[in-house]
Design a protein around this nucleic acid. Structure first.
Lengths: 343, 343
DNA sequence: CGAAAAAATGGTAGCGCTACCTTTTGGGCG
DNA sequence: CGCCCAAAAGGTAGCGCTACCATTTTTTCG
């Protein structure tokens, strides 16, 4: 009776194998590739496992096999609606696979992202999903060292680490601004918060569209690094109006700001869209039911998450997608809030 | 040259120890409890690890030590704003600790929850956070078998598995309805979606408050199991009005519905609050900036998540909280949408 | 019907780390 | 100056599983 070390006390594979009358390795195979066993043994192991209430030890499995069935996901925020849609796609897709998701929050910091990537490295994930394309050089080298399929999501750009699923924020903003210009608006403001790289690219789209129409005026850009809220939309509109009271339309970097702008207009008795047109971004559910209904740029965030998982899992199984960069595009949802001037 | 098995190729602790000129176990201690080493060895190991770019193998660590530094979290939805606030609290608190979070989504299904609990069991988490108090008997027995601190969050009730952090949904709804009654409203409707157990308890609070004032009428209750959206709020109001056109006020089980109701009232030119008072639940940011501003029940969701983590981590370290059930309460935020009748 | 091929099963030896115990070192003190 | 005790460091032996091969059984087919 001189046990050197306390066993965990849980049922081990060996016990299951013993009860089933097979070798441990056969029992092991049952859990990984049941059809490799003869039917009789398969049943014997299954019933033995059930009888003993066997729960495999994932740490031992990972150590022995040198791999895990975890896909790491790095996103900048849990509060932002945008990411909850992406996450829903990710979790939905992962449930159809044998992989589980390990989520981490970078809080919009590329340094935090770097730290979290190192943490993931210690877990040897089978795949990785990261947000955006603006990783540090150090982060990129950690990702390359991890030697697993990686999908960058939310936007597309040149030079993918491995794979990409997203759309062009620049093009989307350009299209939205062009729509306002086509509707006859001239003084078009830009309201931005949480100026992450994707929002910056939307701003660039706005700039270029305005310049192309010779309407650009830097005074009509109001941005802040603080996180987005509906209330903030009102504040930013107030700022904009105090600077340039003659603006006729605003494009907001997201729908929360757009809703805040609508409320602020109502408070100030500014008629939408006659005195102020509004365009949002993301097309959250409430944009269609607001009064007046609000124009927005619809993006397929759920599909982005779903596709990222299917691409990564396919790549793990050796089926790299033929095209590593997938553009999911966007759709401008034109509603009452951006009706043509004087209509 | 007859290696039986491929090594991972990564730097191992042994290599670090060799370079530092210490034994492996000393190097191991460096990563777990640095102050147990003399200063000179501490520095030697640190620089050796850095030089080699050592990344510890978590699977090996977990297997050898029979424990992990993972806290499992089970929530019903990623889309619902309510849970993103809780999650933010959870992730924020976990960053100050040595634990990492493993998140899983039950999709409001207690059977899915049971499955996920078994999955967690295989990972031997150091702690667990689960949503609500309505687990199946089987889930409860799995939780008890896991032998780790467990916090149930979002609500409180009798018979905790281990610990609880939440508030009484019944009391909150009762208070909200009582407020409307005190303001002079008599025909008060109830709009509910995604009728999870917590929402059911809010409905019970509504029922009892209405009965206590002899105002209860089952026809003014409109509920649906489908997930909440702003648009749905409008639909539910339409249903309610078609049944009982004389309602003067509605209490909505969440703020999205309340916003949808406001928009629907605007579409129908029903004046809020003169012809229709509105009360929501959760007090999301937009409730204060809506026009008119919307009354809601504020709950401290962020703190709920944060506290759950601190309670669980304290319990892991042997510091069980003196009181296992924490009631974070709620606050009725009274705004324009529920102003007294005729005021 | 027997040899070859294929399928099913088993034995052995780790995966990289830490628990447990033993040994060494350092320094305070009679 | 040696003794004792605490602190620091090391040796050994697994944690529970699976990779890698070897072996046995079954199937196929000339």
């Amino acid at each position: 009776m001189e046990r050197k070390r306390a066993k965990s006390g849980e049922i081990r594979l060996t016990e299951v194998a013993k009860l089933a009358g097979v070798s441990p390795i056969t029992a092991s195979r049952f859990f990984r590739n049941p059809q490799a066993l003869s039917l009789s043994k398969r049943e014997r192991v299954a019933s033995a496992a059930k009888e003993l209430g066997y729960v495999p030890n994932l740490a031992a499995r990972a150590l022995a096999s040198q791999r895990t069935e975890v896909i790491g996901v790095l996103i900048p925020s849990l509060t932002n609606n945008v990411f909850s849609d992406v996450l829903r796609g990710i979790y939905d897709a992962s449930e159809g696979s044998r992989y589980s998701i390990q989520l981490a929050n970078t809080r919009y910091s590329i340094l935090q992202e770097e730290k979290l990537l190192r943490l993931f490295q210690a877990q040897k994930p089978a795949g990785l999903i990261v947000t955006g394309i603006d990783q540090t050089a150090e982060s990129r080298s950690v990702m390359e060292a991890m030697n697993c399929p990686i999908a960058q999501i939310m936007e597309i750009g040149p030079d993918p680490v491995d794979m990409m699923v997203g759309f062009s924020h620049y093009d989307a903003a350009f299209a939205a601004v062009s729509h306002l210009i086509a509707q006859g608006f001239r003084r078009i403001g830009f309201l931005g918060a949480q100026m992450d790289p994707r929002v910056q690219r939307r701003l660039q789209g706005y700039r270029d569209a305005m310049k192309a129409a010779s309407l650009f005026d830097p005074r009509t850009i109001v941005t802040t690094p603080i996180p987005t809220t509906v209330t903030l939309g009102g504040t930013l509109l107030a700022d904009l109006l105090s600077r340039t009271p003659d603006v006729e339309a605003v494009i907001c970097v997201n729908d929360d700001l757009a809703l805040g702008v609508l409320f602020e207009c109502q408070r100030r008795h500014i008629s939408v869209p006659d005195d102020m047109a509004i365009v949002g971004f993301n097309d959250l559910d409430f944009m269609a039911s607001a009064v007046p209904s609000l124009t927005s740029v619809r993006t397929n965030r759920y599909e982005m998450g779903r596709r990222a998982v299917t691409m990564v899992t396919a790549a793990i199984d050796g089926n790299c997608p033929p095209e590593p960069v997938v553009d999911l595009g966007f759709e401008l949802m034109i509603r009452q809030s951006s009706s043509a001037r004087g209509v």
